[in-house]
């Protein structure tokens, strides 16, 4: 946007911003990286997060309870029902994958068995 930063161009606000940024950005960045790498920052963020979780938990639980009641009264599946169904589907997929693995294995074994005699010298003419 602004290539010549030496000349103050009032109609190029981004140029002014860039000049200001270039003067301060590096120092600001280093200062912030140092700040976030302190134990005090870790302590502060941990405490804030903990506070947020503690204060919001009752509301989340209340909303969940109300929603469950509403959905049950409407004869609709609740969150827990959907989660339970999804878990069952995942388990079915696992079993299907087991079956596919066994099928692959037996197909491979069958291929090996049929390919085996052909490679033996002197037996090729005996194949149908």
């Amino acid at each position: 946007m602004s290539e010549n930063n030496d000349v103050l161009n009032l109609f190029d606000p981004t140029g002014m911003l860039k000049s200001m940024r270039d003067a301060n950005m590096d120092a600001w960045s280093k200062m912030m990286i140092q700040l976030v790498n302190t134990d005090a920052y870790g302590q502060a963020t941990g405490t804030m997060l903990d506070g947020w979780l503690t204060s919001s938990a009752p509301f989340r639980k209340m909303i969940e309870k109300v929603m469950t009641q509403v959905l049950t009264n409407l004869n609709m599946p609740t969150r827990a029902d959907v989660i339970s169904l999804a878990e069952r589907l995942a388990n079915i997929e696992l079993r299907l994958d087991d079956l596919e693995a066994k099928l692959d294995e037996s197909q491979r074994a069958a291929r090996k068995a049929t390919a085996g005699p052909k490679t033996k010298p002197g037996t090729a003419d005996k194949q149908p």
């Binding site: 302190t38 134990d39 870790g42 302590q43 941990g46 405490t47 997060l49 903990d50 989340r60």
Partner: peptide, 19 residues
Amino acid sequence: GFIRWTTNEAFNADKIVEN
């Protein structure tokens, strides 16, 4: 930063997951 934050005693991964 990650290791400093997450190993700080104020950081509680169990509580995050429970909530």
